[in-house]
Amino acid sequence: MSALHIKKGSTSHSAYNLRPNFSDVQERHTITILVENEPGVLARVIGLFSGRGYNIDSLTVAEVDHTGHLSRITIVTTGTPQVIEQIKAQLGRIVSVHEVTDLTVAGPFVERELAIVKVVGEGDKRVEAMRLAEIFRAKVVDTTLNSFIFELTGAPDKIDAFAEMMRPLGLTKIARTGVAALLRGN
């Protein structure tokens, strides 16, 4: 047997390496999925992400075609290029999925999110909150003598920026819808 010159013992990498030699650069992608609006379809998509260890940064879903019973799911995810490719291929494999589009690749695309933000404060802080809201084109949708609820639409980073500004001025609660997105042009 020794005549075979089979190397014994460890090689240059003694630990088992099951990790593929793919790029480890993390990319953020916005993916839209057109699905049949049937019971459990969201669970299929979410289960795929949790079961295979993919990330969901944001997810929105609603029926967009009432006659065809089709819903559009918009998912923002982060992963290596290889993982992003797998996510799309795995989504495409789900029987209820009609179409998978990676807007980040197919792009340019429009991305919008809605947030409602409760800011509690009095005096100068209240005035400042109002002034900043105007700069961000946020609308006041509810007010009391010591609180506002602002409604704001925009790309996620605009909402992040607004929330950051409002924090010292009394931001107490924020609710965000997650991203909805479509390709530009036709």
């Binding site: 047997m1 075979l4 190397k7 013992g9 460890s10 090689t11 990498h13 630990a15 390496n17």
Partner: peptide
């Protein structure tokens, strides 16, 4: 485990201390 295709064990004689 942890080895490549050309690092097969062919029999008992080769197993000593092989797997790290």
């Amino acid at each position: 485990s942890g080895k490549a295709h050309n690092e097969m064990l062919l029999g008992e004689a080769e197993t000593q201390g092989v797997i790290q």
